[in-house]
Design a protein around this nucleic acid. Structure first.
Lengths: 259, 259
DNA sequence: CAGTGGTCTAGACCACAGT
DNA sequence: CTGTGGTCTAGACCACTGA
């Protein structure tokens, strides 16, 4: 029985548990990462790979599809498949679920409900949620922390529907941090699109007090609007991230290697 | 001759110029967007789709592969293919090439070279570029503007290689904004990975003057480190974005529809 | 066990590039 | 014209799931 790993050589082991298309993708990828194929170079034609490795064309194409998908190569009909040039000036900043991110970093996440209120929509909120002035809305204030240090101050609004009252219990649930879950459970229709706008600012007096930072501390402000399938806004919120505790990091280019 | 568009109905036209896998992907997508399939629901098994539309299984699988790729569905071996729940709490902020972005917004991009200098690495730079103290480096200062309003102030450093001197002419080239191009052309080895770190801050005195803003104006600061294929840093820079002019917007969820 | 998705083959015809 | 990638078929065997 053969137990071959992908990295051993440039041969393909058809009896391996590792799929053939995967083995081939790694072989080509290594040729690129190790400089044998440079940006602009053509990789071997599909038929050549079929002959060289004795596999079918669909399998070759699947391997190449993976490389296209990761942005490492691109194809030109009638010409060939070429190594792409990494777009190093592009930035991509991502932030996933807070709870997960914080736990991933080995810290203890915390959510404190600072209060809930039934409010009537003022001009700003009416505009954001595209509702009439004075519509009854639910207003939430949350403080999110890691290792008991406050990090994010959140203000969230959704149209209040009496038919589906919000239970105090739920508000203690960690998934409360997931505003979209709350809106899904208690709104008229569930949200399917989220728009976020990030800008740089400095804390207001109230934010400084809640977050326990000095005045003029820089912060990230994220405005989130949730939309339902009819493109109607169903929730709106503003989150203030402490600028002295948050950094967004992005890696772009040929980063497949060692993470 | 049939000229059918995808949106007409839920039938597949094999004689259309539109690929069959694409037509099928759009049909399933529409079932999801229009609520006939909800998150958690199973989509029809592959064999069912093969029978229903009279197409081969590989074609069905390609359609599903597209949906998996866009995050709309996920598969479970031995169980089925299911509609995914949109992850609305995730943020993804992207910024592409400045020149393109600014032009896309119908504005006139400008780059002003504020100066180039040969400097010796101080402690900070030596650490950032992982080079000995006092190594000779090239230092660039740039001001990037739109419609003649200054927007970004950039400071960039790379190890200075006498073998490939930098011509004044090149520095007037718009592609100069592309730091990685400059490093590629004049460094020892070309960069393949870019690390960017974004944080929120307020302007320093010098930055305020260059950007023409008041003290304490909030800014985004982006630190970029370029690495070669051996994971060695080959360039480092710090860019200051006016917080009163920059917003990053992100759409997440089922946004395939209109835009 | 039957049903599901995962992989793979050995053909086929097409549209497009460049000579 | 030849060579390239793009699409598609009609099978095959496998591993996993759940009854």
């Amino acid at each position: 029985m053969n137990i071959n790993f992908t990295g051993d050589n440039n041969q393909i082991d058809k009896n391996s548990v590792i799929p053939v298309y995967y083995q081939l993708a790694r072989i080509i990828e290594r040729d690129i990462f190790e400089g044998r194929l440079k940006p602009g170079d053509a990789i071997p034609p599909e038929n050549e790979l079929v002959r060289r490795y004795g596999i079918s064309r669909m399998t070759v194409r699947r391997a190449i599809a993976e490389l296209i998908n990761s942005g490492l190569v691109y194809t030109q009909k009638g010409k060939g498949t070429f190594v792409a040039k990494p777009q190093l000036e592009n930035m991509v900043f991502e932030l996933g679920d807070f709870h997960e991110e914080i736990k991933k970093r080995g810290m203890k996440p915390g959510i404190k409900l600072l209060g809930t209120k039934i409010v009537r929509a003022d001009e700003l909120l009416a505009k954001k949620l595209e509702i009439p002035l004075n519509t009854t809305c639910l207003y939430l204030r949350l403080l999110i922390s890691a290792n008991d240090e406050p990090l994010i101050f959140e203000n969230k609004y959704m149209v209040y529907t009496k038919k589906k009252p919000i239970l105090e219990l739920e508000l203690k649930d960690p998934s409360l941090a997931n505003f979209s879950n709350l809106v899904a459970a208690h709104g008229e229709s569930f949200p399917v699109v989220s728009k976020m706008v990030l800008h740089a600012s400095v804390v207001t007096e109230e934010e400084a007090e809640v977050l326990g930072v000095k005045l003029n501390t820089p912060v990230f402000v994220v405005e989130q609007t949730l939309y339902d399938s009819m493109r109607r806004p169903v929730g709106w919120g503003k989150s203030v991230f402490r600028g002295d505790r948050f950094k967004f990091t992005s890696y772009v280019g040929w980063t497949k290697y060692g993470e």
